[in-house]
Computed example of a mutant assay.
Amino acid sequence: MERITISVSDEFAAELAAFMASERYDNRSEAVRDLARLGLERARIDHSISGDCVATLSYVFNHHTRELAKRLTDAHHEHHGQEVATMHVHLDHDSCLEVAVLRGDAAKVREFAKTVIAERGVTHGQVSFVPVSIDVAAHTHGAASRGHAHAHPKI
């Protein structure tokens, strides 16, 4: 068996201890192994989605982190074709939550999400995918007729 050493904050260690007590784990190693297995399973599911998708990217970041807001804005502008909408919420004096609704090729959406989540100063990040088929059609809405995209969830 291979040994891995990690460092965690006091808050994370306390949260892990509370999880261990509530789930009746006898040791940290087994608790961390089970949590890692859950995370890896989720990653396998998320990585298996291909083709068109809609997705939500949510992340928390410290807006005081040097140049982070600029780096995040630049990343969003570089992927403006995938972004449908973004919501920004101030959580406290330091932390902000952003939720971006994305649409397009799952591989490209996944890479954009990885870029954002890996930024220094982003403390929590998660992306959730919904596989869809996207078609562009012209049809009438009221008196106007114009083409636009529709995303149909795959069943």
Score class of each variant (00 low, 15 high):
46 D>W: 02
133 S>R: 14
125 G>S: 01
154 K>S: 09
88 H>C: 07
38 L>Y: 05
41 E>S: 14
119 E>Q: 15
74 D>E: 12
63 H>Y: 04
30 E>H: 01
24 R>D: 09
135 D>N: 08
126 Q>L: 10
60 V>I: 13
25 Y>N: 02
44 R>Y: 09
69 A>L: 11
53 C>E: 08
29 S>G: 08
134 I>K: 08
114 K>Y: 05
61 F>Q: 03
111 E>T: 15
98 E>C: 00
36 A>S: 09
53 C>R: 03
37 R>Y: 08
111 E>K: 15
104 G>K: 01
94 D>R: 11
57 L>M: 06
39 G>V: 00
78 E>C: 05
155 I>E: 14
10 D>L: 10
30 E>L: 11
88 H>T: 02
34 D>W: 07
5 T>G: 13
59 Y>K: 00
138 A>G: 13
149 A>V: 06
2 E>R: 15
52 D>R: 06
14 A>C: 01
137 A>W: 10
77 H>I: 06
150 H>D: 07
65 T>V: 10
89 V>I: 12
88 H>W: 01
147 G>N: 09
113 A>T: 04
67 E>V: 04
77 H>D: 00
92 D>R: 04
139 H>S: 13
99 V>C: 07
75 A>Q: 03
17 A>S: 09
26 D>I: 14
144 A>D: 13
85 A>S: 13
145 S>N: 11
112 F>R: 05
111 E>P: 02
49 I>H: 08
106 A>N: 01
5 T>D: 05
143 A>C: 09
124 H>F: 06
9 S>P: 08
98 E>A: 05
69 A>K: 06
133 S>Y: 13
46 D>S: 12
60 V>D: 07
1 M>G: 14
64 H>M: 07
58 S>T: 14
126 Q>K: 14
35 L>Q: 05
16 L>S: 02
138 A>R: 15
30 E>A: 09
134 I>T: 15
68 L>A: 01
20 M>K: 10
127 V>N: 04
9 S>D: 05
155 I>K: 11
8 V>P: 00
27 N>Y: 03
88 H>K: 04
93 H>A: 14
122 V>G: 08
152 H>V: 10
85 A>W: 10
151 A>T: 07
151 A>Q: 04
44 R>K: 13
85 A>Q: 10
48 S>K: 09
2 E>P: 15
128 S>T: 12
4 I>W: 02
48 S>V: 08
26 D>M: 11
45 I>T: 10
132 V>I: 00
155 I>V: 12
71 R>V: 03
124 H>N: 15
48 S>N: 06
35 L>H: 05
